[in-house]
């Protein structure tokens, strides 16, 4: 690395870390995250919903982070919830699932203006102790100055070292659909 590059990197680092300190950030503590691993022919829905996901979005840089407690997922059947925690996600060992990333083209959209915007988010998802890159479209809706975000993407259970025993293979799918709904409020 030449000195010039070094210098440029240092300047870039400053603008990255200092500038957002004044920028507007948005957050939620009650994002709704659902985890659906229902197999096509399953007689019952393998689906859990967590209504207390936390998320912070930095409007200017497009940086975004989200976290959810695995134990907070509620299933229709208590036994399913128990197995989700004990046998699949192992929530005692790995209590949180987190996403850290960035909106790809944050400057291209104006999230202060009413409308619907599609933006791609790139980052990493950490779940069951495994961190993997994720790229997913995010739909932002601005209405009356209020911002909400909707995300929908699929993850492969094998990528996160979550084994599906063949015994339950006809119920539990090898991929889980994760959807997120969050109403973001400005942080004071």
């Amino acid at each position: 690395m030449s000195i010039k590059h070094f210098f440029a990197a240092a300047i870039a680092a400053i603008t990255l870390f200092v500038a957002p300190a004044q920028a507007q950030k948005l957050f939620t503590r009650d994002g709704v995250v659902s985890f659906d691993a229902t197999s096509a022919n399953s007689p019952e829905a393998i689906k859990g919903v967590n209504k207390s996901g936390t998320c912070v979005l930095d409007k200017s840089s497009g940086a975004v982070e989200m976290a959810v407690l695995v134990k907070g997922f509620l299933f229709e059947k208590a036994l399913m919830q128990e197995h989700f925690n004990e046998n699949y996600l192992e929530s005692s060992k790995f209590p949180k699932a987190t996403f850290k990333g960035k909106l790809d083209n944050a400057s291209a959209v104006n999230l202060d203006k009413d409308g619907t915007y599609k933006v791609n988010a790139t980052g990493t998802l950490t779940m069951h102790g495994v961190t993997k890159p994720v790229n997913t479209p995010v739909t932002f809706t601005v209405k009356g100055g209020k911002l909400s975000a909707a995300v929908n993407f699929a993850v492969s259970m094998a990528d996160y070292n979550i084994a599906i025993p063949s015994l339950v293979g006809d119920k539990v799918s090898k991929t889980a659909n994760i959807s997120i709904m969050a109403n973001l409020n400005p942080m004071k």
Partner: peptide, 22 residues
């Protein structure tokens, strides 16, 4: 400048994490 930027990032939350702001 590097030291300065490191200090700035530290200010932005313990591990530079946005969620720590919550």
């Amino acid at each position: 400048l590097l030291i300065l930027s490191a200090a700035a990032s530290a200010q932005n939350g313990q591990d530079g994490s946005l969620l720590s702001l919550l």
